[in-house]
């Protein structure tokens, strides 16, 4: 069992008797790209603001790398790089001065490191220009640069794809995956763009009305996409469901649908065969994250 890098323990946020986040408990293992999904106003941004110390925590605690945000904020936040909503920069200064500004606030950042990060986000040509001349995409990239300066163990991004063009989104996605693969950076990203999250994340947590409704793995540790459900085509669905009473399953269009990993599927198959149910076919069914999300949050579908 890997130690979780981020651990939210019974976190609640109450502002003037309104509960924005309620009893949120969540562990994010190191090295993952974790997606934090939810409709607007579900409490995503509030949770992220508590994680980076911009908001106080009403109840519970958040640990980052074992340090409590409440009691040892300076240690905890030195592990974190973040963009909270739009990356706002000092427009009257050059991009380079902006980076110098943040570099001074953290120990051990050399001018070489700044150059390196600037190259990484592809701003080398424009870094000496004032930020007010930058396009939104360039500001976003400068935002990523300031978040990465100190090689954070945890990168927190709040709605990072807001206002980016498709190419920018693609670049960001590739970049995040590269970071998590090559440098082992844990990425905690919030969004309401489901298709993006599906492509970007290993695991997603779904939050609704301040409560965590579900956490599910989208990819196996080997990087393979985890299939959400497996369909068994059998001769007698009623008999099969009786045999499989101990598994959570549902019957749809004459197929038995079960969740679970490969071992579980093999196990179910054995159980079916041993109990005389004839299995005609086994195939994975991938429902898109969007379908599941809408199912779970109970929103109306707009076809």
């Amino acid at each position: 069992m890997i130690e979780p890098l981020v651990s939210l323990r019974g976190v609640s946020k109450v502002i003037s008797s309104r509960t924005l986040v309620e009893d949120l408990t969540l562990d994010v293992p190191a090295g993952q790209v974790f997606g934090f999904l939810g409709p607007n106003g579900a409490g995503k941004t509030t949770t992220i603001r508590m994680m980076v110390g911009l908001m106080s925590i009403t109840k519970g605690d958040i640990l980052i790398g074992g340090h409590s945000i409440k009691t040892s904020y300076e240690q905890a936040s030195s592990l974190v790089g973040a963009i909270v909503e739009n990356p706002e920069m000092y427009k009257f200064m050059s991009g380079y001065k902006n980076l110098i500004h943040y570099a001074r606030m953290m120990p051990g950042i050399t001018p070489q490191r700044i150059e390196e990060v600037v190259g990484l986000v592809g701003l080398s040509d424009r870094i000496q220009d004032k930020v007010k001349t930058y396009s939104l995409g360039m500001r976003q990239r400068l935002g990523v640069a300031q978040a990465l300066l100190h090689r954070p163990k945890l990168l927190i991004l709040d709605e990072p794809t807001n206002g980016l063009d498709p190419q920018g989104i693609r670049e960001l996605r590739d970049y995040l995956r590269k970071l998590s693969r090559e440098e082992g950076t844990t990425v905690f990203v919030s969004s309401h763009l489901l298709s993006e999250m599906e492509l970007m994340c290993d695991t997603v947590g779904i939050i609704q009305q301040g409560r965590l409704v579900d956490v599910r793995q989208l990819r196996s540790p080997e990087g393979e996409r985890a299939f959400e459900e497996t369909a068994f085509a059998v001769d007698d669905t009623a008999a099969a469901s009786k045999v499989l009473a101990s598994y959570p399953l549902r019957i749809q269009e004459g197929l038995i649908l079960v969740g679970g990993d490969r071992e579980r599927i093999a196990e179910i198959n054995t159980t079916l065969v041993q109990n005389g149910v004839r299995v005609y076919g086994i195939r994975p069914v991938t429902t898109s994250l969007e379908d599941q999300f809408l199912q779970m949050t109970g929103s109306e579908r707009h076809d």
Binding site: G53, L54, Y73, A82, E85, P87, M89, M105, M106
Partner: peptide
Amino acid sequence: KLLLIRPWS
């Protein structure tokens, strides 16, 4: 926001 998330009280 970017100023206060640094490791400084």
